[in-house]
């Protein structure tokens, strides 16, 4: 079943068209990976799914993006609610310069949770879900910037989980991390798909083939090929896809 359907979408930054007639189905509780060379539009598309592109001046979108059948670009859509339902983890770990506890509690507080006991529970659950509870449980009042980059990224994942999203968007979540932290996050992502629909942009083809169930290959603003990850990596239909995943360019 599709959680998100993208239908014939075009996107412009000013005069520059960054996405051309993109259509894609993103299945529920599975991991969809976006791959492709730099500047191919994969980050642009992922940022359209929670309307982070609204923050970019001169960004214009045509076509439909449906979340559970509802168009998220309709004028009566509440962007803040949308972003609560469609959480995001960014390329660089970006914890707020405050305590670990307050980082996680920021989202729930934004959406009206005030009760201390309830917040405590959310913080613990989110940190457990992000597989970092055991490492930080005694340091919840420590500044989130004082821990390692890999831990910071898992704090950011926990922060995104704390508002109970349905979809988790991850824009190259491991590109700034060392191999051990990367392995931990990959393991975490495969566990998270039981509860969440995950969309992940990655530069790393091995990562896409290890982690994802579905893959979409982007090139120059077009989706060249999309489908089951294993099929695509063993038997790509298009020449360009084959060239890219076999490392001939990109």
């Amino acid at each position: 079943m599709s959680k998100i359907s993208i239908k014939d979408m075009n996107l412009w930054y000013g005069d520059f068209q960054a996405l051309h007639g993109v259509s894609l189905e993103i299945p529920q509780n599975e991991i969809t990976a976006f791959i492709g060379p730099s500047g191919c539009g994969k980050s642009t598309l992922i940022k359209s799914l929670n309307r982070m592109n609204d923050l970019v001046e001169g960004c214009r979108i045509e076509g439909d993006i449906l979340l559970d059948g509802k168009d998220i670009y309709k004028s009566n859509t509440n962007v803040n609610t949308l972003r609560k339902d469609v959480g995001m983890v960014f390329q660089q770990p970006n914890p707020f310069p405050m305590s670990i506890y307050n980082n996680i509690a920021y989202g729930p507080r934004t959406h009206g949770v005030k009760d201390k006991k309830e917040l405590d529970e959310i913080v613990e659950k989110s940190l457990r879900d992000a597989a970092i509870w055991d490492e930080v449980k005694d340091d919840l009042n420590k500044n989130a910037l004082s821990i390692s980059g890999g831990q910071q990224q898992r704090i950011c994942i926990a922060r995104a989980l704390a508002v109970q999203p349905e979809v988790l968007l991850m824009d190259e979540p491991t590109s700034a991390l060392d191999p051990i932290s990367t392995a931990k996050i990959e393991e975490l992502v495969t566990e998270l798909k039981e509860k969440y629909t995950i969309v992940m942009v990655t530069h790393n083809m091995q990562q896409a083939s290890r982690v994802s169930d579905h893959t979409a290959f982007f090139f120059n603003g077009y989706i060249i090929e999309s489908g089951d990850t294993r099929k695509m990596f063993t038997n790509p239909k298009k020449k360009q896809t084959e060239d890219y995943i076999s490392g001939r360019f990109g």
């Binding site: 660089q92 970006n94 920021y106």
Partner: peptide, 12 residues
């Protein structure tokens, strides 16, 4: 990136 993180969590 801090502003993005906050907006990304649905904060106004």
């Amino acid at each position: 990136s801090l502003r993005e993180a906050s907006f990304g969590l649905g904060a106004g």
